[in-house]
Design a protein around this nucleic acid. Sequence first.
DNA 1: GGCGAATTAGAATATGGGTTCTAGAACACG
DNA 2: CGTGTTCTAGAACCCATATTCTAATTCGCC
Lengths: 203, 203
Amino acid sequence: MGRRPAFDRASIARATLELVSEGGPRAATIGAIAARLGAPTGSIYHRYPSRELLLAELWLSVVERFNVGFLAVLAGADAKEAGPAAARFWASWTREHPIEARVFLLHRHEDFVPGEWPDAVHERAQRALAAMADGLRAYTRRRFGGASAANLRRVRFAVIDVPQGTLKRYVQAAKPPPAQIDELIDTAVRAVLDAQERGLRRA
Amino acid sequence: MGRRPAFDRASIARATLELVSEGGPRAATIGAIAARLGAPTGSIYHRYPSRELLLAELWLSVVERFNVGFLAVLAGADAKEAGPAAARFWASWTREHPIEARVFLLHRHEDFVPGEWPDAVHERAQRALAAMADGLRAYTRRRFGGASAANLRRVRFAVIDVPQGTLKRYVQAAKPPPAQIDELIDTAVRAVLDAQERGLRRA
DNA sequence: GGCGAATTAGAATATGGGTTCTAGAACACG
DNA sequence: CGTGTTCTAGAACCCATATTCTAATTCGCC
């Protein structure tokens, strides 16, 4: 009962993803999304209540998918190896998901959702944040015995800041990161995580 | 001959800097800048021909000032120490210039100047880019004897990507980075720069 | 085949923000 | 003190974009 839909949520989300990847969130205007689909602007609003919510869901879905893979690696059995592996995960994820990587690594959520998160996705956003925080805390405890602020900072530095800061350059240039990058990340991360133990032993 | 100016370029630039620091480039609308100065919107255009050029000059002046300090440290006499020192420079600069750091670390130039640089500042932008590239190449040669692509990547990773990726977190939170951060950066950077030599010796 | 819900289609509306325009004010200089 | 020039002041204009509204279309179902 009713007309067959021509533009579903998935294709709208896909077009938005591509536009953001190519030109950032500013490029994903309702008009541009509609034009890419060959749809009239009004049709977008049959699927999404507002541009803000469309962009918020896009951002969240990319972050959630990254988190799943990343946190799985970070929870790997060997605590000594899981950290470096999680850091290297950034590079492989970037190679496998170049479009999503541009969304995730080149923009902050504020560029998508200025101010507060809309109610409709607020809880989802909190969950994503909490999942990451929990994963880091769990790994820190596993690796160092306790999750002091200093230990947490060390882990965050190693498994997030270093790889993220490094890969942005290649994602920006739309080139897959060279294999050497994985080595550099690995070297830096091991040095930082092992340094804590040397420090403890010395103390 | 003529009326005494009430709003000069410096105060307009300052207001713009503050607005960008607080809310990103999007917040620096002509209206907001004028409101902060208690000026009418039209007055901005007596000093700057367009918003685009105002933002472009703001970005460039911050980058140029950072570059001067950074490249001076990177050119320090002791080649072994200059790299780690340059990496740590990011942290101290961030502590000393929190406002500018938010402009420099939280946004890319595309957020200020979408597309090509305006003619009026194009050459200045090129100069800033070239200065950084030259400094990195010179250091790479000094430290490793040659500036191969791999060596250059190693240096860029150590003295730019690692510190930049790390500090963003604290700049974003508007908190001065804790002293531990300097240690983490130092450890990671030394490990990566020294690893090249170990690799060479083995070969 | 006709009814009605779901949808397309795209014009109309509203708003925000950059830029320009006109009028008036202030100050240096003769 | 008048005069010209440089500026303030702020309204007016214009365009891009999000959102809404109305009409037309399609298709399952009776």
